[in-house]
């Protein structure tokens, strides 16, 4: 495999309240390779969005990155000045958001918004940027792009708005696209269209996509690799096939069991109290330990090391370390 496009190393992000500091992302590491779609799954509050925002350096003021590094090619994004980071944002790394209609400026025609994004990165005249905007809009499957470009965000449907947003983010052909739950609030047929669009774009311009979602159906359809997160820690990273056929981490196993399926009666009771409670954030060991079925004593006070089973399948769990086999 080629060199990773982005390499997150022991990233730690903390939320500082008046009385104490809580690591909402605890020393996570993962790589992303060019042209792959990587899924990041986990339940609400597991730190998926915060990971994405850390890469974009868009964290709210109360939340600080307090350790680790994020390497883009061979530059550390966390050590960049705000001027340097602007050359990365949009140009190299772009992001699409959960609620597409909220992510568009309500007072600006969508065509102009895309054109401005084009202008920010490419040296083109405003005339040229406008025609490029229309081109981009038809490229993301907006019919009658010429006249749609003149409409305001409130005149668009949710799916249409997400297409506009995708067009805007593609304006400068980024190397990495972060999609933070891009289909929340859209109905399933539109969801399918948006994911199809993302896949098409990914293969067409060869952008890597970090897809944040909590929908395993989407993961199995779209992604090449998956990272499973719980309470700010990565539990398991593997190829999409391995995650479904051979889940290693007890949390991944339980998470998969919780998926509702027509052909199987789900055991909902075993999965209650699964979501992170605030106490687990202060634990020095594995944050899933308190709810794990195969917990070992060391799980409670020591962070599990990475254990690599087959190439590209890593688990953070003492159950798989060589001494315990």
């Amino acid at each position: 495999m080629s060199a990773p496009i982005i390499r997150v190393e022991e990233l730690t992000v903390s939320l500082n309240t008046d009385d104490h500091q809580r690591n909402i992302i605890d020393s996570i590491s993962f790589d992303m390779f060019p042209k792959e779609i990587m899924g990041l799954v986990g339940e609400s509050g597991s730190g998926k969005t915060m990971t994405a925002l850390s890469i974009m350096q868009l964290l709210p003021k109360t939340i600080k990155i307090c350790g680790g590094s994020i390497w883009y090619e061979d530059k550390d994004l966390l050590k960049m000045t705000s001027r340097e980071i602007r050359t990365i944002r949009g140009n190299k790394i772009a992001m699409i958001f959960q609620n597409p209609r909220m992510a568009l400026n309500p007072l600006m025609r969508v065509g102009d918004q895309i054109a401005r994004a084009v202008c920010l990165h490419c040296e083109v005249s405003s005339e040229k940027s406008k025609s490029m905007a229309v081109e981009l809009m038809s490229q993301v499957g907006i019919p009658d792009a010429e006249s749609r470009a003149r409409s305001y965000p409130h005149q668009l449907s949710g799916g249409m708005a997400q297409r506009v947003l995708i067009a805007m983010m593609l304006a400068c052909k980024p190397k990495l696209l972060i999609a933070d739950e891009p289909t929340t609030g859209l109905d399933v047929t539109i969801q399918a269209q948006i994911f199809k669009l993302i896949k098409e774009i990914q293969s067409e311009i060869g952008v890597a996509v970090l897809l944040i979602t909590h929908d395993f159906g989407v993961v199995s359809e779209v992604c090449d690799r998956v990272g499973v997160m719980y309470a700010g820690q990565i539990m398991e990273i593997s190829s999409v096939i391995d995650v479904f056929t051979n889940p290693k981490h007890p949390y991944t196993q339980r998470l998969l069991k919780s998926i509702l399926r027509v052909d199987r009666k789900s055991d909902l009771d075993t999965n209650k109290a699964l979501s992170p409670i605030s106490a687990v954030f202060d634990s020095p060991g594995c944050r899933f330990a308190s709810q794990c079925d195969c917990v070992r004593p060391e799980c409670l006070w020591e962070r599990p090391k990475i254990y690599t089973d087959s190439p590209g399948h890593s688990v953070y769990c003492f159950n798989y370390s060589r001494d315990n086999k």
């Binding site: 050359t87 944002r89 920010l120």
Partner: peptide
Amino acid sequence: RTRQYADAAISVGNPSWRVALIHLLPN
């Protein structure tokens, strides 16, 4: 400034003064 389109404007690479004056002020 906490609206998502402010974040979106930053994420396409707008400098902060542009976000404030061009995208947020008219609103």
